[in-house]
């Protein structure tokens, strides 16, 4: 329910700017709803979702988006759905009404925090804490993964070619991740630093 959304920010600051190299932005006010297909209902769920939103629920680690609704693969027959609070009044209620028969629908808005990392050194920064390869040959816009950063479990996906990555972590770890981001990105604070 929107009126129960945590109003305190998950992160201690709105952003971290590192010259023209890395930009780290707290993405507050995102509604996050998790859906898990019920047993033997995946096909019906996928068909219903396509009919209503014109989106195919990805069956592999990937992200799709249409009209302000983003879908990120989050495990076997599980997805995270995201939209801005301002754009959609109550995503969980809508999803439960539309797909409750095919899927377990749970509001994760209070459980997750999302941070966006972008800029030409974004991959270098993330490489310090992420064990999967984020090189553009193997991970690009539309790709997603469930993995960890600095020992914190997270979902990560790439939204554009700047590149911009978004990371969803448990909200209680948001502060810890932010401190890690501050220190790990400190070397990029001068725009003329040598590569």
């Amino acid at each position: 329910m929107v009126d129960q959304l945590i109003t305190l920010p998950a992160f201690p600051a709105p952003s971290i700017e590192r010259a023209d190299q890395v930009r780290i932005v707290a993405r507050e006010n995102v509604q996050i709803v998790g859906i898990t297909a019920r047993e033997r209902e995946t096909e019906s769920l996928v068909l219903a979702f396509r009919a209503v939103y014109g989106l195919d629920l990805p069956m592999k680690p990937a992200r799709v988006e249409k009209d302000g609704l983003a879908v990120v693969w989050a495990g076997w027959h599980q997805w995270l759905l995201m939209s801005d609070v301002a754009a959609v009044p109550d995503l969980e209620q809508i999803m439960r009404a539309d797909f409750g028969g095919y899927a377990a629908v749970v509001d994760h808005s209070d459980a997750r925090a999302i941070v966006a990392v972008s800029g030409r050194r974004a991959r270098d920064l993330l490489a310090k804490g992420v064990s999967i390869d984020l090189h553009p040959r193997v991970f690009t816009t539309g790709d997603a993964a469930a993995t960890a950063i600095s020992h914190v479990g997270m979902h990560i996906w790439q939204t554009d070619e700047k590149p911009t990555f978004e990371l969803a972590v448990p909200r209680t770890y948001a502060d810890s991740l932010w401190r890690w981001m501050e220190r790990a990105s400190a070397e990029y604070q001068n725009s003329d630093s040598l590569l």
């Binding site: 989050a74 495990g75 076997w76 469930a146 993995t147 960890a148 020992h151 479990g153």
Partner: peptide, 11 residues
């Protein structure tokens, strides 16, 4: 043997 992908997809 059984393995649990705990810091991933939890499968």
């Amino acid at each position: 043997e059984l393995w649990y992908h705990g810091l991933g997809c939890r499968t």
